[in-house]
């Protein structure tokens, strides 16, 4: 079949589309579904601008066929905010001044989310490894690492104690 019918969950909403077999996920998201938060930089897996979460795992959506997310859960940068309130990782990026042109930011935030979901208390080295697949041509990374560290703290505070009971 040169086209494929797929049904997947996109930022929490059931989505049904028919896609050409050779369409990448990033193309589906941006051109067909209008979710332009996910960026295209290199279009070959090297820059991380197109990173999204698929079943909770970060992947570069320029190297995934749209057909491959059938039945899966896809979260893009647009899916991180909650009823108009930014995700703590997004807030931390703004507060720490970790955004200049912003082109790398959606991918950076997705990589940070993937890292912090698994490792709520990363060392700076772990943060650097966590964002190692995301290139930034503006910031020099220092402020991005600071932002991820600050985000980890925010998430811990929001989680609140946790030791009760």
């Amino acid at each position: 079949m040169k086209t494929v019918n797929i049904e997947f969950t996109l930022n929490g909403a059931k989505t049904k589309v028919t896609v050409p077999a050779n369409m990448t996920l990033v193309h589906l998201l941006r051109k067909e579904l209008g979710l332009t938060g996910t960026k295209i930089g290199c279009d070959k897996g090297e820059c991380g601008a197109c990173a999204v979460l698929i079943n909770g795992k970060s992947m570069n959506s320029c190297l995934v066929l749209a057909a491959q997310v059938d039945g899966k859960e896809v979260t893009t940068i647009e899916g991180l905010e909650n009823e108009g309130k930014l995700h703590p990782i997004q807030e931390a990026f703004i507060e720490e001044g970790a955004i200049q042109c912003g082109y790398c930011t959606p991918g950076m935030v997705i990589s940070a989310k993937f890292l912090l979901d698994r490792n709520p208390d990363p060392t700076d080295d772990e943060i650097k490894t966590g964002i190692s697949g995301n290139l930034c041509r503006c910031t020099g990374y220092t402020k991005i690492v600071n932002a991820v560290r600050a985000a980890a703290q925010k998430l811990k505070n929001a989680g609140g104690g946790g030791e009760t009971r």
């Binding site: 897996g45 991380g48 990173a51 698929i54 795992k57 970060s58 992947m59 570069n60 190297l63 995934v64 990589s111 993937f114 890292l115 490894t129 966590g130 190692s132 697949g133 995301n134």
Partner: peptide
């Protein structure tokens, strides 16, 4: 291998 996004795929 690559970076986390690459290892995941």
């Amino acid at each position: 291998i690559g970076a986390p996004q690459i290892q995941n795929a």
